[in-house]
């Protein structure tokens, strides 16, 4: 390739070991969510009480639960429940947060004031209480948990987006673009938002783990995914009283949850560092 290609590897530093593992785990979970049914050795819902609570073996790598269901298959299917639910919460919150935050930052004093009051109200809602309320109103279920969580999660993003947009809109390169006659709409969508989003998407990656834990937590206390579901929190709740005699039925979904949350967290942090312009400058 051309001469400048030689300079490139210096700007893109290698992925450190821990983050590399985290990235691999996160990718594995995504793969599980996509290809779970192809990988799962058994039907995750097939009850066979004659095979209940078998310890891990060659036949059932992660053992079976109290209903004789294969834990590995259920953990694999669980990724299909927890991960999409998490992504829906993150996507909905990001969308609302982007809209409200951008409007607040660019819409003038009055708009800002009104939107920030609404955001404060959203921030003051505890997710669990709202989920309990929604579960009572709509019936318990994963969708109640997802709605409740989205309603409490977006205000953080609205705040973040507002701060980022306010910062970026005064950046010299935005002024420079304005000086070249770039119209307002293009200024917002091509210059301000892409720079603000850069930081936002790092935050959303970090948040995947947290949202996942809350969804599983809500399922665990009974207001999220309901019993036969292989959602990880629901799995733990279903087998919690077997913890002493059949640790595997609780430990493996718990481990899946823990590793996934941790993996997304580490990946997010790594992206944060990689995205930091000051660090990026030094790498040049």
């Amino acid at each position: 390739m051309s001469a400048h290609a030689a300079a490139k590897p210096r700007t893109r530093r290698r992925v450190p070991v821990v983050e590399g593992i985290a990235l691999a785990v996160a990718a594995l979970v995504v793969l599980m969510a996509v290809a779970g049914p192809l990988l799962a050795p058994y039907d995750p819902y097939a009850v066979d009480l004659s095979r209940s609570l078998l310890p891990p073996s060659a036949e059932h790598w992660l053992g079976t639960d109290s209903n004789g269901r294969d834990v590995l298959s259920r953990v694999l299917y669980g990724a299909r429940v927890t991960l999409p639910a998490t992504l829906v919460v993150i996507a909905a919150s990001t969308l609302i947060g982007l809209l409200i935050g951008t409007l607040a930052a660019l819409g003038g004093k009055v708009v800002d004031e009104v939107l920030m009051r609404i955001t404060d109200i959203g921030l003051s809602l505890p997710a669990i209480i709202l989920a309990l309320g929604l579960a009572a109103a709509l019936g318990p279920g994963l969708s109640s948990a997802v709605i409740a969580l989205s309603l409490t999660w977006w205000p953080g993003y609205a705040r973040l987006v507002r701060t980022l947009v306010r910062e970026v809109k005064d950046a010299e390169y935005v002024d420079a673009a304005r000086v070249m006659g770039v119209p307002q709409g293009r200024l917002i969508f091509r210059h301000i938002l892409p720079n603000a989003l850069n930081t936002l998407y790092v935050q959303t990656t970090v948040d995947v783990g947290a949202v996942m834990l809350v969804i599983s937590g809500l399922s665990f206390i009974g207001v999220g995914a309901q019993v036969p579901s292989s959602e990880w929190g629901a799995m733990i709740a279903g087998e919690a009283n077997n913890l002493t005699n059949a640790w595997w039925a609780v430990a493996f979904p718990g481990l899946a949850l823990l590793l996934t949350a941790l993996a997304f967290n580490l990946v997010g942090d790594w992206l944060r560092v990689r995205n930091d312009p000051t660090i990026r400058q030094e790498a040049r």
Partner: peptide, 8 residues
């Protein structure tokens, strides 16, 4: 040097 958009 500050008047270039870093992500464009």
């Amino acid at each position: 040097l500050a008047s270039l958009n870093p992500v464009m």
